[in-house]
Design a binder for these strands. Structure first.
Lengths: 189, 189
DNA sequence: GTACCTTGTCACTGGTCGGTGACTTGGGAG
DNA sequence: CTCCCAAGTCACCGACCAGTGACAAGGTAC
């Protein structure tokens, strides 16, 4: 530890190092020994302050943004529902692509049971219900459209693309076009 | 080994055990020691016959079905393009949901670099190009629709759902409805 | 028979893992 | 100052890991 004996600071350092290690190498590669070394403290402190690795992941899930926090575009402006939805989904996508921690967190949800994956799922559900209710107050949704399911579908698709597709401008344009195509076809009668 | 000294049979037993272990616990949990014990042979044979774990995964990718092999429905019959596409995507989905090895293989593609993930990606691309060309010969595709991108989008969405959603009848109906909604909106002008 | 090659077994190394108990050090309260 | 508790260090454990070299056993060609 660089500074003096400060429990809160050590705790924060451990969390920060955990976030960096996960962003760099994924949750599965995070171990007590490497984390302690990266944080510059003894591993026994991880057990004392967090009760173990699971506790670190839980704290990370409680304190960090693990799913993109997108803004609903153009409240009251001229954006149509399809444009707003498209913008939300694409913004989720670029946020994940640009943030290694978000990517690894999304991957953590799919790679077995761990505290990080559960936190990711919870955050995503919360954000999505916010988005849906916001969209429903600012736009009229056609009765034959299940907006929740549509958002889930598009979001899931771009999540998987972010996880497995190399990050090229061509891919970007392709996805953008496709999302726009679907949103327009469904929401502009 | 139960039977006599037979290189091919031992090789096949190792591959079979690897498939079962992956289906049960995922690729990351597969090690040389557990695999050798499950196959009932010495681990040195894994090195001799496959050159190591990566070789086992490569052989598995070459010999096994790792992405659903769906049939294009209703050649020449009354199925519309949107019905055919919907059926393809949903069939991919139920196949993955019903086969633990397929699920773990799909997860392997997202969890870092390994031979299994590469094999999965290759198989998926092959199947999808087959599907696209088949659909294009039996149906007329509206010019404003990027059928490749649409299949990728819907397939990615159901893949992620299969990976992270508990397998309930409600979820099934929800997804079925949504996929149908998107396919109809886009492909029935 | 014998010689030889392949298949399979065994024992071992060096390293990393998670986890724990015993210890030292610092800082604040009295 | 002294006392005491929290913060931090150190050494160690048993278990598991991938990988290797030496050896035994079986089958086959001659």
């Amino acid at each position: 530890m660089a500074t003096r004996r400060d429990r809160f600071e050590t705790r924060a350092t451990i969390l920060q190092s955990a976030a960096e290690l996960i962003a760099a190498h994924g949750v599965r590669a995070l171990g007590v020994n490497v984390l302690a070394e990266a944080a510059g403290c003894d591993k026994v402190l991880i057990y004392r302050y967090f009760g173990g690795l699971d506790g670190v992941l839980e704290a990370l899930g409680a304190e960090r943004m693990l799913w993109p926090r997108v803004e609903i575009e153009n409240e009251g402006g001229g954006a149509s529902l399809s444009e707003a939805l498209q913008s939300v989904v694409l913004e989720e996508w670029v946020s994940m692509w640009g943030d290694a921690l978000l990517l690894q967190a999304a991957a953590a949800e799919l790679g077995g049971n761990n505290a990080l994956g559960r936190a990711v799922a919870a955050q995503r559900e919360e954000r999505h219900t916010e988005i849906i209710s916001s969209l429903r107050t600012t736009h009229r949704v056609p009765p034959y459209v299940d907006l929740d399911a549509l958002l889930e579908l598009l979001s899931a698709a771009v999540t998987l693309f972010a996880l497995r597709t190399p990050r090229t401008p061509q891919a970007w344009r392709r996805i953008e076009k496709t999302i726009g195509m679907v949103a327009r076809a469904l929401l502009e009668s």
